[in-house]
Design a protein around this nucleic acid. Structure first.
Length: 575
RNA sequence: UGGGAUGUAGCCAAGUGGUAAGGCAACGGGUUUUGGCUCCGUCAUUCGAAGGUUCGAACCCUUCCAUCCCAGCCA
């Protein structure tokens, strides 16, 4: 294919290259105010802090675009920080996938790849400091007892009998916890705050728990691990973060975030919460995604139906489209669910401008051009993009036997159907006008072959007599066609909100049984030269991406998204 | 029932006392060798509800209603 657009571009473009459409959101407004007041000396430093216990998904994309985007817009920096404080759930496989996904989306953390586990020693020192201040104590209560003592949402909690141990005793006990003298669950370190606080988070939250477990980075160095609330604020502080952006469910935790930092008297970033992303027809919870993978409802984390970044990448969704999506959905504090159609729009918008057009027939019917010479093959030169000549052109063979799409022929055409039917004339794209003379049926009454004639004067697709033809259909020359496996994807879930399941059912009952259809189609020869990951439009069908399952003799394509189909809508309405 | 957060169109979302941006979806039309793209047009007398303040309220006050989050030694 002669073209300036080699589509395996996998180009790493940066977040923030596309500027947001409308005015700024409340977070950017907040940062502007802080800059104006000189609060952080005009500095902007954010962080994207995933826990390496699963793959990144669309929801993370919003956070990545926000954090890296804001940093770039304000000439600041954004750290990639692994929030790895729970050794029993985290794995190296996940940190690797996260790195790859963030980079793919365009996040650049330069040399600032951080790990909460890098701060364990510092965090420990701060904990001893809290103990010295009488602000933390070692509790011998069991997990169950702690829960009981915590009270309820409407009732204050009770103080632990171990709450008033001396500083010396706490220090000794905490050191022995670190030394491994106690079993898992035997003791914890708690902050001494207020068991009667209306905010349950403040009722003497656990700071450290004992876990005799191998950590993916620190190995067996530690057997006590800090909790999220304690770790996150201090990590932000240590890294000099200015604005700690997180989702709404952490609003309650902000009080504790502030308490730890204030009590220790250390550098204090500002936590700001925004609404997490929900999208129709999909689930964006790590727990549910991991379940889909573990129970084999999908082929893996990168199954093209998954809303994971790796799944969407494999499906052919370009990172630019994801970024545009994140720009368009806006940012606010109200719970919201964005329609999947919004994502599709962004995907089509980018693909339309950046993708060459070629022809493929996914459900072939053979067409024999009766008045076309046997054994003759001619070739057509066709542009690869109707509006952008920089995509170049390719040559396409034409011969007496072709394939066209089954859906482009009707024995009994409905009104307004302007494709092929007995006696009707259509244009074969960039080739000739053909007229259907006869439909050959097999024993089962199914159309198996079309006998047609062509008008030699219509070469190129125009007739010299000015005769108009309403339909233009795509085709592939049979002898030169390349067979291919094509995977047609639909929504993974059949309902708008998969989380809403009736009594006794789960989100799994909402899975769409037709989310994957595998067909065997015929490709025009030029399609044989694509590289894995390359994106292309199959004319009139949609955008496709060559899958890594392809072999030399067996190409495999994933359908990224269909084209808008006004006819399908019309036909459905007429029925 | 305690605390916190949030309600602007089918879905997102601007608007912050001067008379409801924009996008997606939908619908109608032009154009078209992709029923694609593109272009033009339509789409909130009303901002969760009810009162109040004001010359004037989506914006301020009061009450009410609805939804979401919090009782992990998860993050």
């Amino acid at each position: 294919m002669s073209s300036e657009h080699t589509l395996t571009e996998q180009t790493i473009t940066a977040i923030g290259d596309t500027t947001p459409k409308s005015g700024q959101d409340f977070i950017r407004a907040h940062i502007l105010e802080d800059n104006a007041s000189g609060r952080f000396g005009g500095r902007v430093h954010t962080r994207f802090p995933p826990e390496p216990n699963g793959y990144l998904h669309l929801g993370h994309a919003k956070s990545i675009c926000l954090n890296f985007g804001v940093a770039r817009e304000f000439n600041g920096q954004c750290n990639l920080r692994f929030d790895d404080t729970n050794p029993t759930k985290e794995e190296t496989e996940y940190v690797e996938s996260i790195r790859e996904d963030v980079r793919w989306l365009g996040g650049d953390w330069e040399d600032r790849e951080c790990y909460a586990s890098n701060y364990f020693e510092q965090l420990y020192a701060y904990a001893e400091q809290l103990i010295q201040m009488g602000k933390a104590y070692v509790d011998d209560l069991s997990a169950d007892q702690i829960r009981e003592y915590r009270g309820t949402l409407t009732q204050a909690g009770r103080e632990s009998p171990w709450r008033n141990r001396s500083v010396e005793e706490n220090l000794d006990l905490f050191r022995r916890m670190r030394a491994g003298e106690f079993a898992d669950g035997e003791k914890v370190l708690r902050a001494k705050i207020d068991m009667a606080s209306p905010n349950v988070v403040m009722r003497d939250p656990t700071l450290y728990r004992i876990r005799h477990a191998e950590h993916h980075r620190t190995g067996a160095t530690w057997c006590i691990y800090p909790m999220y609330d304690y770790t996150h604020c201090l990590s932000d502080s240590i890294e000099g973060i200015t604005h700690s952006l997180c989702t709404l469910e952490f609003v309650n935790n902000r009080e504790l975030y502030d308490w730890v930092l204030n009590t220790l008297g250390v550098y204090h970033p500002q936590q700001i919460e925004f609404a997490r992303l929900n999208v129709t027809y999909t689930v964006l919870s790590k727990r549910k995604l991991i379940q889909l993978v573990r129970e084999g409802h999908v082929s893996g984390w990168d199954d093209p139906r998954m809303p994971t970044l790796s799944g969407m990448r494999r499906r052919g969704i370009p990172p630019e489209a994801l970024r545009e999506f994140c720009n368009r959905i806006g940012l606010a504090r109200a719970d919201s669910t964005v329609e999947y159609a919004m994502l599709e729009f962004c995907v089509r918008e980018w693909l339309n401008d950046h993708t060459p057009r070629l022809m493929a027939v996914l459900d072939p019917i053979k067409v024999v051009i009766e008045n076309y010479p046997e054994d003759h093959v001619e070739s057509f030169t066709m542009p690869c993009h109707p509006e952008d000549s920089s995509f170049g052109s390719r040559t396409v063979p034409f011969s007496r036997e072709l394939y066209i799409e089954r859906d482009d022929f009707r024995l009994d055409p409905p009104k307004k159907y302007h494709r092929l039917s007995p006696g009707a004339e259509v244009r074969l794209r960039y080739a000739y006008f053909i007229t259907c003379r006869e439909a050959v049926l097999d024993a089962a009454g199914r159309v198996c072959e079309l006998r047609c004639t062509y008008d030699p004067a219509s070469r190129g697709g125009q007739s010299p007599d000015g005769r108009k033809v309403k339909g233009t259909i795509h085709w592939v020359s049979a002898a030169q066609a390349i067979p291919a496996e094509v995977r047609l994807y639909d929504q993974l879930f059949a309902v708008e909100n998969p989380n809403e399941a009736p009594e006794g059912k789960t989100f799994l009952d909402n899975l769409n049984p037709h989310s994957l259809t595998v067909v065997h189609g015929m490709l025009e020869p030029a399609l044989g030269n694509l590289k894995t990951g390359e994106r292309v439009q199959f004319e009139r069908l949609g955008y496709f991406c060559k899958d890594r399952d392809s072999t030399e003799t067996h190409p495999v394509f994933n359908r990224t998204v269909t084209l808008r189909d006004t006819w399908a809508k019309l036909e459905k309405k007429e029925v």
